[in-house]
Design a binder for these strands. Structure first.
Length: 351
DNA sequence: ATGATTTGACCGCT
DNA sequence: AGCGGTCAAATCAT
C-alpha cells in the first residue's frame, strides 16, 4: 500500500470518528449525514481501488468498507446504527450503482468512458451549439444517452411536508416537468444549480411512485463537478468579486443547511451546527418544497435559496478563513485535511 | 435586479 | 408517430 492509500484510509477513519462524535448534532440533519457518509465511503472505495486495482467488486465493496471500519474500531454502535439508516442506504445505493456502472463500462473495453464521453460531448457541442445558435435560428438541442448513474427510491419525510423528497445534499434547479405516460404523477427535471458556474453536468429526475405516493423515485444522471471536496473547485474564483460571491454563497449555504456543494463532511461535522436561527424559523430545510404560488405539482426540490440572506450566521469568517488561509497556491481544504491528517497520524504514532 | 419556477413548445430518439 | 428530455419566455419571489 502506498502512502496515498494509507492516507485515504486514515482520512476515512477520521471522518467516521468525527461523524460518531457529532452524531447527536447531526441527528436532524440527514443531508449532512448523507454528505458525511458519501465522503467516508468515497475515501474507502478509492483506497480499496488503489489496493486491488480498478476492479472493485461492488457487493464486496460495502462489506469491505464496513469490515475495514470495524477493524479500525470505528464501527461502534452509533455509527453502525447510522450506517443502517435510510440515508446511509441512499448514499450506499448511489455508490453501489456507480460501481456497477463503472464495471459495465470497464467490460466494454476499448470504449471511452460514457460519462467522460458525455461531458466531453456536451462541452464540444456547447461550442458547436453556440456557432449554430449564432448562425441559425434553429434552437440548439442536445440529447444523447446520458448514462444513468443512479436510481434510488426515497421515502417522503414522515414529519412535515410529505410532498417533498428528502434533501440529498445538493442544490438543484428545476428546468422542466412532464406528465409521463402510464404514471399518475409528473416527473420533475432538475439540474445542478451550478451548471453554469462549474459546468456541472449533474441532473436528476424526481417522480412519485404510482403505487406509493409517499415514495419518490430519484434518478441521478451525470456527476457533480462542482464538488468542493479535497480538491479545489473545478473553476477557481477568478476575481475578488467572484471571491466575495462565493463567500456569500457559502455563508448562505452554511446558514441555511441547504448544502450547496458541501465543503466536505469533515468540515461540516466539525461545526457546531444549529439550523434554528433567524426569526420565523425559516431555515431552508423548512422552506424546501414549500410551494411558492400555485401551479406546482408539489414535488419539491432543494432550491438554492435566498432566504439565507435574512439569516445572520457567523460563518462568513469560516468561509473567509477557508478562502484566505495560506497562499493562493494552497488549497484551503487541503490545508484543513492536511492538518487533520497530521493530527491523526500523530495520534497513531503515539499508539 | 436577480434568480428560481412554471409551462408550452421544440426536437431527438425509438 | 409519439414519448420523453430540454429549452426558454413568462411569471413569481425576494
Amino acid at each position: 500500500m502506498d502512502e496515498t492509500t494509507i492516507s485515504l484510509i486514515l482520512q476515512a477513519c477520521k471522518l467516521a470518528r468525527d461523524l460518531e462524535s457529532n452524531l447527536p448534532n447531526l441527528a436532524n440533519q440527514p443531508n449532512l449525514l448523507s454528505n458525511s457518509l458519501d465522503e467516508i465511503t468515497k475515501n474507502f472505495v478509492t483506497a480499496r481501488e488503489r489496493v486491488y486495482g480498478q476492479d472493485p467488486s461492488t457487493s464486496s465493496c460495502l462489506h469491505n468498507m464496513l469490515t475495514l471500519a470495524h477493524q479500525q474500531q470505528i464501527g461502534t454502535s452509533p455509527v453502525q446504527e447510522w450506517l443502517r439508516s435510510n440515508y446511509a442506504q441512499q448514499a450506499m445505493d448511489i455508490i453501489q450503482t456507480q460501481l456497477v456502472a463503472d464495471q459495465k463500462e470497464a467490460k466494454i473495453g476499448g470504449c471511452i468512458d460514457d460519462d467522460d464521453a458525455e461531458v466531453k460531448g456536451l462541452q464540444a457541442m456547447e461550442v458547436s451549439d453556440m456557432n449554430v445558435a449564432s448562425s441559425s435560428s434553429q434552437r440548439p438541442r442536445r440529447r444523447k444517452d446520458q448514462g444513468l448513474i443512479s436510481k434510488i427510491t426515497v421515502p417522503a419525510p414522515r414529519i412535515g411536508n410529505t410532498e417533498i423528497p428528502p434533501e440529498d445534499g445538493f442544490t438543484w434547479r428545476k428546468y422542466g416537468q412532464k406528465e409521463i405516460m402510464g404514471s399518475r404523477f409528473p416527473r420533475g427535471y432538475y439540474r445542478c444549480t451550478h451548471q453554469k458556474l462549474y459546468n456541472c453536468p449533474a441532473k436528476k429526475q424526481v417522480q412519485r411512485l404510482d403505487n406509493d405516493p409517499l415514495t419518490f423515485e430519484v434518478m441521478y444522471r451525470g456527476e457533480h463537478t462542482c464538488h468542493m471536496s479535497a480538491t479545489a473547485p473545478s473553476i477557481p474564483p477568478p476575481s475578488a468579486e467572484h471571491h466575495n460571491a462565493i463567500q456569500e454563497s457559502m455563508a448562505r449555504t452554511l446558514a441555511t443547511t441547504t448544502t450547496t456543494d458541501p465543503p466536505t463532511a469533515s468540515l461540516w461535522l466539525s461545526m457546531d451546527f444549529n439550523p434554528i436561527r433567524g426569526g420565523g424559523g425559516s431555515s431552508s430545510s423548512g422552506m424546501i418544497g414549500s410551494s411558492r404560488g400555485g401551479g406546482g405539482d408539489g414535488i419539491g426540490t432543494s432550491t438554492t435559496t435566498r432566504y439565507g440572506k435574512e439569516v445572520d450566521f457567523p460563518v462568513v469568517d469560516l468561509a473567509d478563513a477557508m478562502f484566505n488561509s495560506g497562499s493562493s497556491s494552497t488549497n484551503s481544504m487541503d490545508f484543513i485535511f492536511h492538518s487533520a491528517e497530521n493530527k491523526w497520524e500523530s495520534e497513531v504514532k503515539k499508539n
